[in-house]
Amino acid sequence: MIRIRTAILFLVIAMSSCVSNKDIAYFQYDEIEQANVSNKFETIFKPDDLLQITISSDNIEATLPFNLPAVTFGTTGTATGTPKQQTYLIDSRGEIDFPVLGKLKLGGVSREAALELLKEKLSPDYVTNPTINIKIANFKVTVYGDVKNPGTFTIPNERVSILDAIGLAGDLNISGKRDNVLVIREENNKKMKYRVNLLSNKTLSSPVFYLQQNDVVYVEHNKARIQSASANSNTTLFISVTSLIITLVSILTR
């Protein structure tokens, strides 16, 4: 009887998988390719980006038409609430409608190129030596799959690495597949897929190490997690049947 119970116990243990350090420790393989590692990242504006554009100069009055406040009007026609900085949505054609200057093509343009474009449009006819700041108000990334806290996260400074994003999601679960993390990115109106191996130091030189707005990071379940999920659905039945077999064997061997 004891032998039967012991055998069943070993069987149950065998059904669960053991996880070793080599399956979960980040950056354990390959040498760091220092020549390819860069702290630079470039923001490329895309359709549906909501931009905050601030124009400043020594002549404050000259900048007022380009810094319109966003206010809410009540039923009486009076402004209510605290005025906020106006935002400009990049439409499907990659354009924004900016005060005085009209339509500006910013979709597919880097921040540096956008700043140069605005300076050319503003100076010297409207504002002399303008200082321009452009911020994406709705910069966000999404992390889901086998992580502790999946979700969509707003990034205030537009600089976020894949490690930052995973940290915001509470890190991968033990059962998360670290060697094949998927990053989905929109480029030139197409969805592109990149694979990242977090076990390798080559991740530090990956083109998606720094994420862009609206990137999606997906962590797959490893095989053990999938098998465990399948096994768990039958665990209760397995235990019941095993108990019945033990009882019958006990009765028949008396």
Rank of each mutant, 00 (worst) to 15 (best):
P130F: 06
K105L: 08
S233P: 03
S206E: 03
D215W: 06
L104Q: 09
L50D: 04
D179F: 02
G151R: 02
E158W: 09
G77S: 07
N21P: 06
D91V: 00
V216T: 10
S200W: 15
T131S: 15
K121H: 04
L9N: 11
T203E: 15
L172R: 02
I155Y: 07
L237E: 07
S230W: 13
F66V: 09
K22N: 14
R93T: 12
Q85E: 05
F10W: 09
I239N: 14
T142L: 12
V217T: 04
R3P: 00
N138W: 05
L117V: 09
G176C: 06
A231M: 12
G94C: 02
E31C: 05
L117F: 13
S110M: 07
S230P: 00
V100Q: 04
A231Y: 13
P69W: 08
L118F: 05
S233A: 11
N36A: 13
R111A: 11
R111P: 11
V183A: 00
A35D: 12
P156L: 00
V143R: 02
E95D: 15
A70V: 06
N180G: 09
K46E: 12
M1C: 08
R225L: 13
P47A: 10
D171R: 09
I226V: 11
I251T: 10
Y126Q: 02
G102E: 03
R195Y: 02
S250N: 06
R225G: 00
E120D: 11
G108N: 05
A165L: 00
R111Q: 15
A79W: 12
K177Q: 10
R225Y: 13
F41K: 14
R93L: 02
V109W: 10
N39P: 06
P47H: 07
D30P: 03
A25I: 12
K119D: 13
T72V: 14
D91G: 06
Q213K: 12
L68V: 08
A231E: 07
I24E: 03
L252V: 06
A113P: 11
A35V: 04
T78Q: 15
N173C: 07
T154P: 02
N214C: 07
L115A: 03
T154A: 14
R254H: 09
S16L: 09
H221K: 13
T247M: 08
K193P: 01
D179A: 05
V196D: 01
K177Y: 10
N21H: 13
F98H: 11
D48F: 04
Q52E: 14
A137R: 04
N173H: 11
V249I: 13
F66G: 00
T235F: 07
F66Q: 01
V217E: 09
R111M: 14
M1E: 11
D30F: 03
L89V: 00
F98C: 06
A14M: 06
T82I: 15
K202S: 15
K223A: 10
C18N: 08
S200R: 15
Y26L: 10
I44H: 09
N214H: 11
L244P: 04
V37P: 04
L204C: 07
Y144T: 13
F209N: 06
K103T: 06
T87S: 12
T78M: 14
G74I: 01
F238V: 08
N39A: 10
F66S: 00
S205V: 07
T154Y: 12
